[in-house]
Design a binder for these strands. Structure first.
Length: 582
DNA sequence: GCCGTTTTCGGCCCGACTGTTTTCAGTCG
């Protein structure tokens, strides 16, 4: 059974939203939000903690601990049920539209009876918001655009949520009697940034016990299809999972078929037809005799087509089949090639874990180097000061001795201002081992201004990495508008790496933009942007995205040995390497 | 609602942007 922390987090966040919508105390609302975040980041499973232990979680006091305990014991929360009765669920859903917060959501409900995003879109199109204070033409236009962005993600779930569901399903099915193999296929195996249906593939002589195990999963709220070879279930949140069971001898062919993409499958089937073969999920066959040529493993199937095995993340019909035929397929960077993380936070700013805990978790991952990059002062809410970050540096230097084999880098995540300037002058930046610089504000500058500010940041000799360059948030915020080719050219020219941010709601750069940047000769840093020890694991999604962008170890600076990384960070003409640097 | 080497009460995350209510409320990071 999965950890219940996320479930409790969702409950507390809902309660916090309802406090805001009903005009409750803003500090109380924030207290619930803070507690929700802390629960999510807490190392232990909350369902194993009593009310007393729950209070050990920072931000969780008596009242919230009792509520969590009540919910875990009874499955209900009386206080929440009471508030829910006053506010239809659709009103909270309105807040998912950018530019709509609790006040506007409640106004729409109270004044116009609007209680869902669909009703809101209709009301705007039918001009029914006319005369409603705070909803002028510009606002209405922004709301409609926001709804479009949200719909673009069309019921798809983020990679981490899909991964968690798939792992639970695979574990359940694999434990069924007679199951020989079981794995996730489809877009999840290809590490697409969002997942529609989750495809689970299994091999067994007798599919029946597997189907029974699948429909009995706790996550299966509803059985949509129940057949001998294929069964589909839906979670309470509406995510659909499909299980296909194949005969064991067809495992490889089935895996190729159900991993896709559809376009990739079309491409390789064309090759099969040219070779007088037929390719299906049951194998690669001689078109005339019907003899099976290959089916057991993916390698055999591709080899039967005259191709090397193609890594799943590349199977998007972006030229990988042609590259494979020419023998020019890249060897994509693998998770175990990552030697360190170059963008992480601690509780000095908005992280949840202390510096020693984050460093300890990095050491446990076997990293050779690790950078701490807390927020700089221009992100006002973080209240950073020179004194605080220098004190942290002293602490980092002290910790360095305690983890042999792990080089600690003291860095910061700077804010790229509208003019391309950053928080601190060069004299102060020179003291950092590494500077990430990211856009956190002024998302709506025009294209020229965005391009100029990013290029200016690249030209800052102390900036080593541009963090989450487009600042998009999947499903909720489009990226900034900039001439990416001009920015990538500047990155390549100045020796500034571009980040592949592994946070599942960012994955920024996205795969297509990575492919573009790579053509400019840009180097990359694949980072977790972790705000808790658990989020260091988001590196896997960053690596998956890097693979989709065809990146190799040579492209990714944090796969390099420490000496090569140091040469990149402190190349001549960039910054002066102090003696203490790696 | 949480929290405390100044506090068990009185603070708590601050500033910018946006559209529009022409003096500011709401939203966002």
């Amino acid at each position: 059974m999965a950890r219940r922390n996320e479930e409790v987090e969702a409950l507390l966040l809902e309660y916090a939203d309802l406090i805001a919508i009903t005009g409750g105390d803003a500090f109380k609302q924030r207290a619930y939000e803070r507690a929700a975040r802390a629960v999510r980041g807490h190392a232990a499973d909350v369902s194993r903690l009593g009310a007393k232990d729950l209070r050990e979680i920072p931000g969780v006091g008596k009242s919230i601990a009792d509520k969590i305990d009540e919910y875990l014991r009874t499955g209900r929360l009386a206080a929440l049920d009471e508030t829910r009765a006053a506010v239809p669920p659709g009103v909270r859903q309105l807040m998912s539209v950018p530019s709509l917060g609790p006040k506007k959501a409640m106004t729409l409900y109270r004044e116009r009876g609007i209680a869902s995003v669909g009703e809101l879109a209709d009301a705007i199109r039918e001009n029914r918001l006319k005369g409603l204070a705070g909803f002028g033409p510009k606002t209405q236009e922004n709301i409609l655009r926001g709804i479009e962005v949200a719909r673009g993600s069309g019921g798809r779930v983020l990679l981490d949520a899909a991964t968690a569901l798939a792992e639970e399903a695979v574990a359940g099915v694999a434990a069924a009697p007679g199951c020989e193999r079981c794995t996730a296929a489809g877009s999840l195996r290809r590490m697409r940034e969002t997942i529609g249906d989750i495809d689970i593939l299994a091999a067994a002589r007798d599919p029946e016990p597997l189907m029974a195990a699948f429909t009995a999963l706790p996550l299966a709220a509803e059985v949509v299809v129940r057949g001998r070879r294929k069964t589909s279930v839906r979670t309470a949140a509406g995510v659909r999972l499909d299980l296909r069971v194949l005969p064991p001898e067809a495992w490889g062919a089935g895996l190729v078929y159900f991993t896709g993409s559809r376009q990739h499958n079309v491409r390789i089937r064309e090759i099969a037809v040219q070779a007088k073969l037929k390719l299906s999920e049951y194998g690669l066959f001689d078109a005339e005799t019907g003899d099976r040529r290959a089916a057991g493993t993916e390698e055999e199937v591709y080899a039967g087509l005259g191709l090397p095995w193609i890594p799943p993340a590349l199977r998007e019909d972006r030229g990988e089949v042609a590259a494979a035929r020419r023998g020019e397929l890249p060897e994509p960077v693998a998770l175990d090639a990552i030697r360190g993380d170059l963008h992480t936070h601690t509780d000095l700013t908005d992280g949840l874990a202390s510096l020693p805990d984050m460093v300890g978790a990095a050491a446990a991952r076997g990293y050779a180097y690790y950078a701490v990059t807390d927020h700089a002062p221009d992100l006002r809410m973080q209240r950073m000061t020179k004194e605080k970050i220098l004190a942290q540096r002293a602490e980092v230097r002290e910790l360095a001795g305690r983890h042999p084999g792990l080089r600690l880098l003291h860095g910061t995540e700077l804010n790229i201002g509208p003019d391309g300037g950053v928080d601190w002058p060069g004299t102060f930046l020179a003291g950092f081992d590494l500077c990430v610089a990211s856009v956190h504000s002024h998302f709506r500058l025009d294209r020229d201004a965005q391009t100029r500010r990013l290029i200016a940041a690249c030209e800052n000799p102390y900036v080593n990495v541009i963090g989450h360059l487009t600042t998009r948030k999947i499903g909720s915020r489009a990226g900034i508008d900039a001439d990416l080719d001009a920015v990538f050219a500047a990155c390549a020219r100045t020796g500034t790496a571009v980040e592949v941010n592994g946070h599942p709601n960012r994955l920024d750069l996205r795969d297509e933009d990575i492919l573009r940047a790579r053509r400019h000769g840009v180097k990359f840093a694949v980072d977790s942007d972790a705000h808790s020890t658990g989020e260091l694991g988001n590196m896997r999604y960053g690596v998956g995205t890097a693979q989709r962008g065809w990146l190799t170890v040579d492209d990714v600076i944090n796969t390099w040995p420490p000496e090569r990384l140091a040469r990149f960070l402190h190349a001549p003409g960039r910054t002066t390497p102090p003696g203490t640097r790696p």
